[in-house]
């Protein structure tokens, strides 16, 4: 049996949302940065367990410094969400508690993954310290460039969604 789930990926400008999706869907990476305008939609079918697959429809929303500015219509009917910040750029996670509160209010009762991306650019020990100091509990620390934990992130979300279904 195959079900379809809408997953939105959101966060500030240039945190690597598109790169994360590209790494997950086509296992590629490009240093060439192109701003996402509006929304870009891709799809990947994953196998949750034998004979049970799920079609993940990934909505890559344009980056914004004000999470309130994300169009409500893009959030409607979402089954799961991924909030991405850039571990090498404090401005993308300094107000993360506020940002996450807004996201949770706007899409309540759906699994939300908090992801620190670009871990290849920082020292992991220092990063742990920074995250602790800022009271940030990231579900995954990823690198779209090296592929670190990218598949794991989306598979975890898909599994959560299959349990919720």
């Amino acid at each position: 049996m195959q079900s379809s789930k809408k997953i939105i990926v959101l966060g500030h400008f240039g945190v690597g949302k598109t790169s994360l999706i590209r790494r997950f869907v086509s296992d590629t990476f490009s240093d060439n940065y192109k701003v996402t305008i509006g929304v870009h939609i891709t799809k990947k079918v994953v196998e949750i367990k034998a004979g049970d697959s799920m079609s993940l429809i990934l909505w890559d929303l344009e980056g914004t410094d004000d999470i309130n500015a994300v169009r409500q219509s893009y959030l409607l009917g979402t089954h799961g969400a991924v909030f991405v910040f850039d571990v090498s750029r404090p401005s993308t996670f300094q107000n993360i508690q506020k940002d996450l509160k807004i996201v949770s209010e706007r899409i309540s009762q759906v699994p939300l993954m908090v992801v620190g991306n670009k871990c290849d650019l920082v020292d992991l020990q220092e990063l742990k310290q920074v995250l602790t100091e800022n009271h940030i509990e990231a579900d995954f620390i990823t690198s779209a460039k090296t592929g670190t934990d990218v598949n794991l992130l989306f598979m975890k979300l898909a599994t959560l969604l299959s349990h919720n279904a």
Partner: peptide, 16 residues
């Protein structure tokens, strides 16, 4: 599946 997602996004954008 991708086309229906994209059509929904276009439709939502225009209506918004």
């Amino acid at each position: 599946e991708m086309v229906s997602g994209m059509l929904t996004a276009i439709k939502s954008f225009v209506e918004d």
